[in-house]
Design a protein around this nucleic acid. Structure first.
Lengths: 220, 220
DNA sequence: CATACTTTGTTAAATAATTCACAATAGGTG
DNA sequence: CACCTATTGTGAATTATTTAACAAAGTATG
């Protein structure tokens, strides 16, 4: 089952796989059961050769002359992206952003089960969001262990992000998605990425001010 | 004043400039007025040569033997990133995410002035957020023109993102930051980027499932 | 003011990512 | 079943990005 090939591949490949997956879901929903790299690429503004190469890092999923079977490729990508299982997620920092993300329906849909909320504000602790209580930061280490939580979303202000991150690492979390606009120093073995609203806006204003270039096609 | 050099530069350079800017702000706040590329790099897990190269695309901002004057470099980066002026921003889609972002203090701090909210839900129109009323989508074109709005944040569900985008382009918006998990087709001359929570999570779960690699240092 | 020390800006080298181009192959057709 | 068309998978070529290395240029010191 999938992931059978050897080579190193570009860091951006995995991100593109996610886009392919999403686009294929749309095709499947419309009852389309075969797609060529050319057609898939045209929907994403990606060259067909890029798609074929990305997929080839993981296996031979297509049929020459015929293209890719949508359902089969979806199954393979689901496996590669780790979406064939459920992941337990906690949200740390229940301000506006944390609360919004906690209720984002896209999480459940992809198998990300939000099982706990944490904050250190007296007024917030004990309140419920989606029927789940907001817990004190002191409860975090035990909670992570008892519920085998693997992923944490950090939605605290920039200044508290690093201490929160340290606590999460110590508690044995496996991955962190950071929404605080600050770089984090994270344990070697903990995967982490940041999502950064402010930086994206600044990239936009740079291009608005100085450039006629289009931005990345992939983000289109 | 800045932006004086010729060459093409990597697409990722602008994003890094934003990180440099943010880090320099921190240094300035701590009263530090000179920094070397080495020290700046160590704070961001970026090689000093990368920093020097990125900056060199835009000008000669440092002094050999001395490093960079923090305040001066901040001023130059502020100019390059278009942060030396105010930008009028609207938010389209006032669900949880839209509401959260509308109240994000980082926007005002960087000169992004949120001047209008739009939604098409009867129950939401007329309500106020931060003292600003939520308006009907019908009012959008006139509002954009009358208030010279340049940036729109799309926080509607994936299915409505493209129609909203079309409306924004027609209304003469200059840039779009898309939070809906779907690719958009946008007018040639409208800059746009997407911020994608789901994709980032899927990248994480791929790496959790299959790889011992660290993720990008820049996002650390 | 000569020497030692720093640290930039830049050219060259090394790596990485994308795109091209085409042989290999599956399926359809007469 | 021979030929035609479509489209993959991939090695080679191209393009893009990062890193190394170092001369140039500044400060500090005795």
């Amino acid at each position: 089952m999938a992931a059978k090939k050897k080579h190193k591949f570009p860091k951006t490949t995995v991100e593109r796989l996610s886009y392919y997956f999403r686009t294929l879901e749309g095709l499947a929903k419309r009852g389309i059961d075969t797609v060529s790299s050319e057609v898939l690429g045209s929907k994403l503004n990606i060259k067909s050769s890029q798609i074929r190469k990305d997929l080839s890092y993981f296996g031979d999923f297509g049929k020459r002359g015929m293209g890719y079977d949508v359902k089969y490729l979806l199954k393979e990508l689901r496996y590669i992206l780790g979406l064939d299982r459920r992941w337990s997620v906690i949200v740390v920092g229940m301000g506006n952003l944390g609360t919004a993300i906690a209720q984002y329906p896209g999480l459940e849909k992809r198998g990300f089960q939000v099982v706990g909320f944490f904050d250190n504000s007296r007024t917030k602790i004990g309140q419920e969001v989606n029927g789940i209580p907001i817990r004190s930061m002191d409860e975090l280490p035990d909670f992570v262990k008892e519920n085998t939580v693997e992923i944490a979303l950090i939605t605290v202000p920039a200044a508290s992000a690093q201490p929160v991150c340290n606590k999460l690492c110590k508690a044995g979390i496996k991955a962190i998605l950071n929404f605080a606009p600050t770089p984090l120093t994270v344990d070697e073995n903990v995967k982490h990425l940041s999502v950064d609203l402010t930086t994206k806006l600044e990239v936009l204003t740079y291009y608005m001010s100085f450039s006629k270039d289009k931005l990345w096609k992939i983000f289109a």
